[in-house]
Amino acid sequence: MTLTVLVVLALGTFAFRLAGVVLNDRLVLTEPVRRAVSVSAIALIFALAVQSAVAEGTAFAGYARLGGVVVGAVLVWRRASFLTVVVAAVATTALLRFLGVA
């Protein structure tokens, strides 16, 4: 059962990717549709990031993790380097947990 599901998902993923390559020149999108697709992709990635920051399973992940994500987001907004963003976010989360913030 599990192997069948994995094979079906793999084939579906391959088919979607192949459709993008095959239909790239044949499918003409208007400019408003192109913008909507672009914005929806950004919104989806943002929603996944927020969900990962706020929830762990079905429970609230805690304020320490959320604080680290906020610090990281501010540094990204200020165009800090990737290493700076990661280290600052991890350090913020660790410090908040050390101080007893759940």
Rank of each mutant, 00 (worst) to 15 (best):
A55D: 06
P32E: 07
A64D: 04
L96W: 00
T2E: 10
A49I: 06
E31F: 05
A36V: 13
V28Q: 12
T84S: 14
R65H: 10
V87W: 02
S81V: 05
A55Y: 15
R97V: 09
V54Q: 09
I45T: 13
A36N: 12
V74N: 08
R17E: 14
A15H: 02
A88W: 02
A88D: 03
V86Y: 00
R65A: 05
R79I: 04
A73N: 04
L44G: 14
L9P: 11
A91M: 11
V101D: 01
T4P: 06
A89Y: 02
G12K: 02
Q51N: 13
F14D: 01
R97C: 10
E31G: 02
V37S: 09
Q51H: 12
A36W: 15
V28K: 13
A10S: 11
A80S: 13
A91N: 07
A73Q: 04
F46W: 02
I45H: 03
L95P: 05
V7K: 15
V54P: 09
A94Y: 09
V76W: 03
V87Y: 01
A91W: 00
S40D: 11
T2N: 09
A47H: 13
A61F: 02
R35S: 09
G68C: 03
L99H: 04
T13C: 11
A47R: 04
R34S: 13
V74R: 00
L83K: 10
A55S: 12
V101H: 05
R65L: 12
V71M: 05
V70P: 00
R17Y: 12
L75A: 04
T92I: 01
F14N: 03
T2Q: 11
Q51C: 03
F82P: 07
D25S: 08
D25I: 01
R79F: 07
S81R: 10
S40G: 07
I42E: 08
V21K: 14
R35P: 01
G62I: 06
A19R: 04
V90N: 00
L18V: 09
V7Q: 11
L6A: 10
A80M: 03
V69D: 03
S38H: 10
L9C: 12
V90E: 00
L18Q: 04
T58L: 14
A49K: 05
Y63C: 08
A94L: 04
I42M: 08
S40V: 10
F98L: 07
E31I: 07
V76C: 15
I42N: 11
A43I: 07
L95R: 01
